[in-house]
Design a protein around this nucleic acid. Structure first.
Lengths: 93, 93
DNA sequence: TAAACTAGTTTATAAAATAAACCAAATTAT
DNA sequence: ATAATTTGGTTTATTTTATAAACTAGTTTA
């Protein structure tokens, strides 16, 4: 009986990482838009994915404003694939 | 952007209800076995599914011991189907 | 120059999950 | 006979997690 990765089995984080799996990279505002999360919550959950090494975060400046870009890592892809596989087995789909 | 049903987006409850979707009914011990949860946790999560009307719980006696049987309801089936559908969309599967 | 906006982070609170403790009755061992 | 263990759970207390609110630092606009 394989357990689901608890870091991925959370709606906002799953939304973030499964979106990042479909694009090359996305900035903070894009993630805000696709998730309709609050900024605070998004910030916290991105940090958790980053700390786990599932997402790489790059902070630069876009003109004079700070700009945060996120990209899924190889580890993130691997873990997402494994999560989806276990979930499918559990849901019989 | 449709949110996932938070009652179903929890590993143990999801495991319980997706198992109940595949059988006519299951007793407490069967659910313990398929989930490898603790009895306390299983009891709590079954109650939550029951309170939501997703699972029907019948308490009888089997010989001299109490015996708890669980069965998914129509509402439970409907909600599980909707949950799975939203999840699939989210995961692009 | 004050107000409002961008782009976030930090922190406090609320909610949830889980484990530990408990309960009542039955069974088994001494 | 009675003490210990087991069955089949429930309740409660603790820990963890999620989330919203408040804050930071600087920029733009009125």
């Amino acid at each position: 009986m394989y357990k689901l990765n608890p870091l991925l089995h959370q709606e906002l984080r799953l939304r973030i990482i499964s979106f990042l799996a479909t694009v090359e990279r996305a900035d903070f505002n894009k993630l805000l838009e696709i998730s309709s999360a609050t900024k605070g919550n998004l910030s916290v959950q991105i940090s958790k994915l980053q700390e786990a090494g599932y997402v790489e975060v790059t902070k630069t400046f876009k003109g004079k404003y700070p700009h945060t870009k996120c990209m899924i890592t190889e580890k993130g892809k691997k873990e997402l694939t494994e999560y989806v596989s276990r979930l499918k087995k559990m849901l019989n789909i």
